[in-house]
């Protein structure tokens, strides 16, 4: 009786290990497919450059349609930064440094990261759903049967559009945030306008801060678009499959952006010193 029980629990443990192994294998396999997918998309990009019309169309659906949410979010984040920063700084009598606080936070960290999260939620999910639906309705197979390469006509233009749109969206986010911080700090809380800009300018360095933010947003745009495209193209061609892929796309893209942000921050800070 006892030996039987231990045999069962040992079996259960083995099952758990086998299960974990299978999951790890599936994960590796997916990652590998995602890598090959990216390679093929990148290879197709030169062919797209000859068709700027396709890119413009995608910049519209990826970038322009995301701009409203970025404007609103940027304004609110800027307002909160202004308010919160002022409340902390005023205790040390250094509310004149509000500009430094708002500018550095937005340009280096919050601008690229929050924009990338919004981008994954708005544009990324839309991309995944669109591609998943195209797959479910056999549009990719249809294109292939018309001797049209979906990588060149469908995927590569979207990849480029994400790559182009993200830095611009992040810049708009930061700019709106800085203005919103100005509105709160200078307009409502009485920080000196000259001090706000002067402190910001003396603290935010063009190469080290602004370009850091720019490179980050470029990397995030690349990563978020890649995940969105892959999840859509790899989706199970059913209604539930597309739904699942969309959720997974937003979750994976957001986590990837946050993880990448940590790595990039560490890397870019290291190269500074």
């Amino acid at each position: 009786m006892k030996t039987e029980a231990t045999a069962v629990s040992a079996n259960g443990r083995l099952d758990a290990i086998a299960n974990a192994g299978r999951r790890a294998f599936v994960f590796l396999e997916r990652t590998g497919r995602a890598g090959l997918f990216l390679l093929r998309v990148l290879q197709s990009i030169p062919a797209v450059l000859a068709r700027p019309g396709l890119i413009v169309q995608q910049v519209f659906s990826v970038g322009v349609l995301t701009i409203v949410i970025v404007l609103v979010a940027g304004a609110f984040v800027g307002l909160v930064l202004g308010l919160q920063g002022y409340n902390v700084l005023v205790r040390f009598n250094s509310e004149a440094s509000l500009g430094t606080f708002v500018g550095l936070t937005l340009v280096r960290e919050l601008g690229p990261v929050v924009t990338a999260l919004l981008f994954a939620g708005r544009a990324g999910s839309a991309l995944t759903a669109e591609l998943g639906l195209m797959k479910a309705t056999e549009q990719f197979a249809g294109l292939e049967m018309m001797a049209v390469d979906p990588y060149k006509r469908v995927l590569a233009p979207r990849m480029l559009a994400g790559f182009i749109s993200m830095p611009l969206l992040a810049a708009i986010f930061s700019a709106v945030g800085v203005l919103a911080g100005y509105f709160i700090g200078v307009g409502l809380l009485g920080v000196d306008a000259g001090a706000y800009w002067a402190q910001m300018q003396s603290a935010v360095d063009f190469d080290e801060d602004l370009m850091t933010g720019f490179w980050k947003s470029l990397a995030f745009g690349f990563a978020a678009t890649w995940v969105a495209l892959f999840e859509g193209y790899d989706a199970e061609p059913t209604a539930e499959g597309v739904g699942r892929a969309t959720t997974r796309s937003v979750v994976s893209a957001s986590l990837l952006v946050l993880g990448l942000n940590f790595v990039l921050t560490a890397f870019l800070l290291e190269t500074d010193t």
């Binding site: 639906l133 195209m134 309705t137 056999e138 549009q139 197979a141 249809g142 294109l143 018309m146 390469d149």
Partner: peptide, 19 residues
């Protein structure tokens, strides 16, 4: 293959029209 496919029409169950 692509050259060959230009000469092969296929009608998908769903139509596969570009939406």
């Amino acid at each position: 293959l692509f050259e060959m496919r230009k000469r092969m029409g296929m009608l998908f169950q769903s139509g596969a029209l570009l939406t």
